[in-house]
């Protein structure tokens, strides 16, 4: 059960309401089931709908770590929103980091109310690429929309992360946890989204 990086520091970031906490919970449970020591740190409470949020996972085969990742020490960022991905990259990035990002933006209210300019998407992508060893961009929001399940974009992203092979957990481990966590009414749609993510790694991502 040796890990390439120990502790593995994983960040899941996005906008409040996108469901990053759920991704973190499912992943944490999957890791825990496989015997890893895992700590998850969340921002929630006041940062609900619309604020910048992120969860940090610290996974180790040896011992428990605290929830705070030291600056510049993240290994993977799973971004549910591109601006948030860049924000977290600036704080926690390093030349070896790998980013997987949904590329469909959510405009901060300042863009409308105070004439802030949301960065040009191409420049944003370029910046993320610049600050990473490799970066994968996917319009998961659009995929979710086509499925008719905008709210399940987070599960699509989870599927992509699992299919990337970057984590020492497999699809089956995650599926087990999802079945445990979701109430029966909500399970099928989320499973469908997860599967879509798993299968999209070859087709829809721009891999750099």
């Amino acid at each position: 059960m040796e890990m390439v990086q120990d502790p593995l520091n994983l960040i899941i970031c996005g906008v409040g309401g996108q469901g990053n906490i759920l991704i973190a919970s499912i992943l944490a449970a999957s890791f825990h089931q496989k015997g890893y020591r895992i700590t998850v740190g969340d921002t929630f409470g006041a940062a609900q709908r619309g604020g910048a949020v992120f969860s940090s996972l610290r996974v180790s085969a040896r011992k428990l770590y605290g929830p705070l990742i030291p600056s510049g020490k993240a290994h993977i960022i799973l971004g549910l929103e591109p601006l948030e991905t860049l924000r977290l990259l600036i704080q926690y990035g390093n030349p070896e980091i790998v980013c997987i990002t949904n590329i469909s933006p959510i405009y901060p209210v300042g863009v409308i109310a105070h004439n802030l300019r949301y960065p040009n998407i191409e420049e944003l992508k370029k910046s993320i690429l610049d600050l990473s060893k490799s970066a994968h961009f996917i319009d998961a929001a659009d995929m979710a929309r086509r499925l008719g399940l905008q709210i399940s974009m987070n599960m699509i992203m989870l599927g992509i992360l699992i299919a990337s092979g970057l984590l020492p957990v497999k699809k089956e481990d995650v599926l087990e946890e999802m079945k445990r966590i979701f109430p029966p009414v909500r399970l099928p749609a989320n499973l469908q989204a997860f599967e879509l993510g798993i299968h999209s790694i070859a087709s829809e991502t721009e891999i750099h």
Binding site: Q48, G50, L83, R87, P108, V109, G110, V111, L116, P119
Partner: peptide, 10 residues
């Protein structure tokens, strides 16, 4: 490039 993301009213 990074702009702030203020907590809005829903």
């Amino acid at each position: 490039m990074v702009i702030p993301r203020a907590l809005p009213w829903c």
